[in-house]
Every structure is written in structure tokens, then in C-alpha cells.
Design a protein around this nucleic acid. Structure first.
Lengths: 209, 209
DNA sequence: GTCTATATAATGATAGAC
DNA sequence: GTCTATCATTATATAGAC
């Protein structure tokens, strides 16, 4: 558990980037303004340009920063022995922590590829482990399954506003988080399709899908 | 199976709305321009204003149109006996058809509430059915489960660019769709957590979650 | 209902001083 | 590295003719 450094101690460049992450997350890329970001960072709009060149380049820097972060987190997760009772899926939610808003928007716009791809990689490893205990071999490549599982895991991040409204409690609040966790555990432990029905459906797809 | 009416036959108002759905979906709300929408609809920008008042109001009209559509589809799905081998989840993807891009963006921005909420309602009914065959009672309210399942189902729509990249095939193409279908069937028929582990996790959350 | 033309406001980019 | 001042663009909103 590390504590975020005092904003005062950060370089102007870092403060600008953090402010951008916040503004892009809150208002979206287009609606966020360089002036607004500069103000939050406590600098002039000219300095933003000096450090990043353009708004677009500033966003790239944000994505890059997140890419580094997710890689670091991945390495850390990997070095620990995987806790059996905590799904890797839950990790994704927690990890992105304060960047949920930015990540959600960025992903929905097809950006932040590195974040998604790193999670897929982690998912593949998790699935490899999972397949050892699975009786029947999967008819689908690991990578495809990892991609789908990752997308599902991230859906809560991307659609958290709707989730909160539908569940009647803010998913980012303590109670919301708990309810969500219990819900996901329940879902992940109960298959929606029986193996029979699944086999039938797969066969149908293979024939005339 | 109905066929879309010839654009020539639509009123200017309808053409504008359809063009807006397309532009908002392709470029996002901010980047889309009234002029561009007007051009696609084959009218002047002044007429857009005349019919909808403002860009924001135009978006509202788009959301409202989609809300109507989803309600109509829901009614239709409900009136049919639910096919057992086709997951309701798959329906969501297919239904939104040509509006995938718009819906994906709108949902990510917290809009199109009606679309999400209607799908949740449908999900609740599906879960009600599901629970009849389920041996253990769920410790989580139906609504919460429906919300989570819906979010997962929609994740493919919202994150389709990343899914396509990770799977190596465009999910909207025939092959991509097939691979995706097979993948989802596989995932939905194999629980990620054992009932044991799930029970343990639930207990842990109930104690000191 | 539909169009043309204009007003206005905001913002990203830029230049240059310190 | 940092700031102030300005330019140039762009798109929404508006007014008014047909």
C-alpha cells in the first residue's frame, strides 16, 4: 500500500497529466479544455502546450501513463501466488482505482489498448490455470475466451452509471461494492447454460452457423 | 423480418434523426456536427434547428427513438416462448443491430438509460425462469443479478473494437460473430468459481466485507 | 417547412517575453 | 520552464426570406 505523493511535490508535467486524466475522465476528451486542465494543475495553458504539444498528444501521454501503470500492476499480481478465492476479474476493477472514469471513457472510444491487452494477457494466464481443472477441453482458443472474460470484467467499469442506477446503490460506494462483489460471485459460480445445451448450441453453430 | 423503408419515403425529421444516430455513433456527440448531419439527411442545417431546436435536443430525440425501439423489441421477445438454447444475452447484441455504434457510445456516457433498463427488466424475467431450475437459492436480489448480466452482455457492444483486436477478427463480421458466439457459449456453460469457493467468498464478505 | 446568411462564443494553436 | 496575449478556426445558435 503506497500513498500518492503530495501534488505539491510533483513536477508541473506530472500535475498537468494528472489533471488531464481527471478532466478527460469527468467530461470526456472533447468537452475537456486545455484551459480547464491547466487551471486544475495550477499552471498556464501555455505550459501545457510547452510540455505536450497538443491536446491529442496530451491524451496519448495519459494513455501511456496508464499503460505503464497496468504493466506494473500485472507484474505484481503475477509475482504473487494467485489467491484462489479472489477472482482475477475483481482485480481489474480495483486496480484501475482512481482512473475508473478515464479508463471507462477511453475504452469505450477504442483507446487505451494497452490496458485492455494487458488484462487479456493476465486473463489468458488465469484461464491456463483454470483449464487444468476443467474436465472437457474448450472448443475455443484461449485468447478469445480471455478477451470475452476481460470485456465482461470491464463492463462494470464502463457501465458503472447504469449499474448503479439499476442496482439502486452507487457501485463505487462501500455498500455498492459489496453488493456487486456478492452478485458477481453468485453469477460466476452458476453457469447460465447447461453443458448439454451448450454442446447442442456449439454443434448447431459448427453445422450451419 | 421487416425491411427498412426507403430513405426517400421518410419525412425530413426522420431522416435527420437517422443521420444523427449515424453521425453520433461514428464520430461521437461532440465531434459530430449539425452541418454534417444535415448533409447526410439531405437538408439544410437550418431545418435541423427548426425540427429539434438544438444539438442536445437532437440527441435526446435519438435516445427516445431507441427507447421506443427497445420497448417494441422487448414486447416481441416476451410474446414468443423463450427459446431454450439461445441465451437472452445474444438477443441484446443482435437487436441493436445497426445502432451498435450509437448505443455503445451512449451507454458509455451514461445515456440511453431506457435501453439499459429495458434489458435489465428482460434479464429479470429470464433470471426468474432460470431460478426455477436452480438448486440453491441466490443470496443476491434478482435485480442486481440482472443488472450485472446485462452489463456483461453489453460489454461486447461497448468494447467491440478491443474485442476484435484481441480476438484477431472483426466481431461484426460473420466469422467474428461465430467465434464470439462459440466463445460466449463456452464461457456461459462453465462456472469460473466452484460452489464451494463461492460460498466461502460470500461468507467472507458477509463477515468483514 | 425549408433555405441562406450572419452573429457569437469558445477553444486549440501560436508567438514571444521573462 | 513558465507566463501573457493574440490568432484563426469552427460550429452552434439565430434571424429572416421564400
Amino acid at each position: 500500500m503506497t500513498i500518492a505523493p503530495d501534488p505539491e511535490d510533483l513536477t508541473a508535467r506530472a500535475r498537468i497529466r494528472d489533471a488531464a486524466l481527471q478532466h478527460f475522465g469527468e467530461h470526456g476528451f472533447e468537452r475537456a479544455t486545455i484551459r480547464g486542465i491547466a487551471e486544475t494543475a495550477g499552471v498556464s495553458s501555455g505550459l501545457v502546450r510547452h510540455h505536450f504539444g497538443s491536446k491529442e498528444a496530451l491524451r496519448d501521454a495519459c494513455d501511456e501513463h496508464l499503460a505503464k501503470l497496468i504493466r506494473r500492476i500485472n507484474d505484481q499480481v503475477r509475482s504473487d501466488p494467485m489467491p484462489s478465492d479472489v477472482n482475477y476479474v475483481a482485480v481489474a476493477r480495483t486496480l484501475l482505482g482512481p482512473y475508473q472514469a478515464y479508463v471507462g471513457r477511453a475504452l469505450a472510444e477504442g483507446r487505451a489498448e494497452a490496458v485492455f491487452d494487458e488484462l487479456v494477457r493476465l486473463g489468458e494466464e488465469w484461464i491456463e490455470e483454470y483449464d487444468r481443472t476443467r474436465p472437457d477441453p474448450s472448443p475455443v482458443p484461449r485468447k478469445a475466451r480471455a478477451a470475452a472474460v476481460t470485456a465482461m470484467a470491464l463492463s462494470v467499469t464502463v457501465l458503472r452509471h447504469h449499474m448503479s442506477r439499476a442496482m439502486g446503490v452507487e457501485v463505487l460506494s462501500p455498500e455498492g461494492d459489496k453488493l456487486l462483489a456478492k452478485t458477481l460471485i453468485d453469477i460466476y459460480s452458476h453457469p447460465m447454460l447447461s453443458l448439454e445445451d451448450a454442446a447442442k448450441a456449439q454443434a448447431a453453430l459448427d453445422q450451419h452457423g
